[in-house]
């Protein structure tokens, strides 16, 4: 537990530094708000409409694919630690798991989810 006590201390001190510097600057800094200063920045033009509009669906798609792959990697960490004892059988099992995910990856690629330029015309099935 000794190690984690140091980490807790570190978190407390790090957060303390960030909080104190923000508080200190809000005390030290001047405060002369004007309507223009407080408006959202839009290259000097008066802001038009709300900022929280609908965004490209590709961001959500990337986030979903990321989740899958990150979970894959999370599974690989304990496997990498234990490979010494698992030997070939452990290796083949994880290779099977990674192959399945790799086919999923190929599917995502072929469907064009990883393309960021203009969507290509839909291909019929696998070329």
């Amino acid at each position: 537990m000794q190690g984690w006590l140091s980490i807790l201390l570190m978190i407390a001190l790090g957060a303390g530094f960030a909080l104190v510097s923000v508080l200190l600057s809000s005390v030290l800094g001047p405060r002369q708000p004007t309507a223009e200063k407080l408006a959202p920045y839009e290259c000097g033009m008066p802001p038009v409409g709300d900022a929280r509009e609908r965004q490209s669906v590709k961001f959500y798609l990337i986030a979903m694919i990321f989740l899958l792959f990150d979970i894959e990697v999370a599974f690989l960490y304990p496997w990498a630690m234990a490979l010494r004892d698992l030997g070939w059988s452990g290796f083949v099992q994880v290779l099977l798991f990674m192959t399945l995910l790799f086919f999923g990856y190929l599917y995502v690629w072929r469907k064009g989810a990883l393309d960021w330029d203009a969507p290509e015309p839909r291909r019929a099935g696998w070329r």
Partner: peptide, 24 residues
């Protein structure tokens, strides 16, 4: 998200997509 301004919002979406992509 908190800025509620167009450029920061777009930039933060791009940044997070970039960060999670390379994290894998």
């Amino acid at each position: 998200y908190a800025s509620n301004s167009k450029y920061p919002l777009l930039a933060s979406l791009r940044a997070s997509a970039q960060l999670i992509s390379y994290e894998v």
